[in-house]
């Protein structure tokens, strides 16, 4: 495992991060957020609020224009490519646009992160089948993902992010295309993973999945945290 995936330090530490897309679109402005190990955090806010941008910066797809982002103690602006790859193996990401491979089957897509970790074929088969079961898509196991509905594709993306039971999971609108019943299964999976020790950040505008939740919620508005602009204290680890 990676350096300082330890209990005391925040696993994700965003300090006054700002992201400006060219020419001058401010997606995230002066945002600070610390997420401790084992937390499950809902990152809420209307569409366009900057949730996706924030998650992309955490998994090294985008660089912040200003500010510092640390993941597991690594300053992402100073990390080498090989270290980024190592870090990414510890992070499961559900992308808002899925980023699954259309020509490969459901099974193959979910297996990819485990193959990258060189898990045994037997282990992979067992885990993938288990995830298919949990998300109720066992019957689509050997079908190309291009032929699935959006909701089914989304579940493939979720299963892939969960495959390795990574220490950190970032989920961007994971229930965006799902009905409430399937959303329930997905949230059940996230809770299982969280109980097993994974830290999870869920970006969502779907009020139904976080309204009754006892977990921490932070809200982004126009790239700022509502109420407590650019402050580190409030969105810190909640006890």
């Amino acid at each position: 495992m990676i350096k300082s995936f330890s209990d005391d330090l925040p696993i994700v530490d965003i300090v006054k991060a700002t992201k400006v897309y060219p020419p001058d679109i401010i997606a995230v402005q002066n945002v600070s957020l610390a997420v401790g190990k084992g937390e499950l955090v809902f990152l809420t806010g209307m569409s366009g609020a900057g949730k996706t941008t924030l998650l992309k910066m955490v998994c090294c797809i985008e660089q912040p224009t200003k500010g510092v982002i640390e993941v597991a103690g690594h300053d992402l602006s100073r990390i080498r490519q090989t270290e980024i790859q190592k870090l990414r193996r510890q992070i499961g990401v559900v992308y808002q646009d899925f980023k699954i491979l259309p020509k490969q089957t459901v099974y193959e897509n979910i297996a990819i992160p485990m193959e990258v970790m060189y898990r045994s074929p037997k282990e992979i088969r067992k885990r993938v089948d288990q995830l298919l079961e949990t998300l109720r898509i066992t019957h689509k196991r050997n079908i190309q993902t291009a032929k699935l509905s959006r909701g089914e594709q989304q579940r493939v993306a979720i299963a892939r992010a969960a495959a390795n039971e990574p220490p950190l999971i970032l989920a961007d609108e994971p229930t965006g295309n799902l009905d409430s019943e399937v959303s329930g299964y997905v949230m059940e999976l996230f809770k299982q993973l969280n109980n097993a020790g994974s830290t999870i950040i869920i970006a969502t505008h779907d009020e139904s999945i976080y309204r009754k939740s006892r977990h921490r919620k932070v809200e982004l508005q126009h790239g700022l945290f509502s109420g407590h602009v650019g402050h580190r204290q409030l969105p810190l680890i909640n006890a």
Binding site: T82, K86, L87, R89, I112, V116
Partner: peptide
């Protein structure tokens, strides 16, 4: 996609 899930150069 392989890069996104952290595949190393060797893979």
């Amino acid at each position: 996609v392989l890069r996104l899930v952290g595949a190393d150069n060797k893979f």
